[in-house]
């Protein structure tokens, strides 16, 4: 049961949250301008590091806000969380 620090609500149990995968994958401004390969990149290709990973979480059973987190996937440890209007946390911050 991870303890996740929602930037709005504070630390809460993992069961209140939904996982949202890698952060910073923006919907392309011009999907039509993308090749099938580039579109597939957007749809499916994701970083999957062993170590710090910038990811998204959704406080589904709380404030219902999405937020960003930097978490070490090797230790499961949260290094930082941030609101969506704050800079994406990076390793080392």
């Amino acid at each position: 049961m991870l303890l996740i620090r929602c930037p709005w609500c504070g630390p809460r149990d993992e069961v209140e949250f939904r996982y949202g995968g890698q952060a910073g994958i923006a919907y392309p401004a011009d999907p039509d301008g993308l090749s099938d390969e580039a579109w597939a990149d957007y749809l499916f290709m994701r970083d999957n590091p062993k170590g710090p990973f910038a990811e998204r979480w959704f406080h589904a059973a709380g404030c219902r806000r999405w937020f960003h987190a930097l978490r070490d996937t090797a230790t499961h440890r949260f290094l930082a969380t941030a609101r969506l209007d704050e800079p994406l946390p990076e390793a080392g911050t």
Binding site: R18, G20, F58, A60, R64, R65, W66, L84, D85
Partner: peptide, 13 residues
């Protein structure tokens, strides 16, 4: 509902 909120918050705030 999750889907609506996700797009609203993360893509079209």
């Amino acid at each position: 509902l999750d889907r609506f909120e996700e797009w609203l918050q993360t893509e079209w705030p």
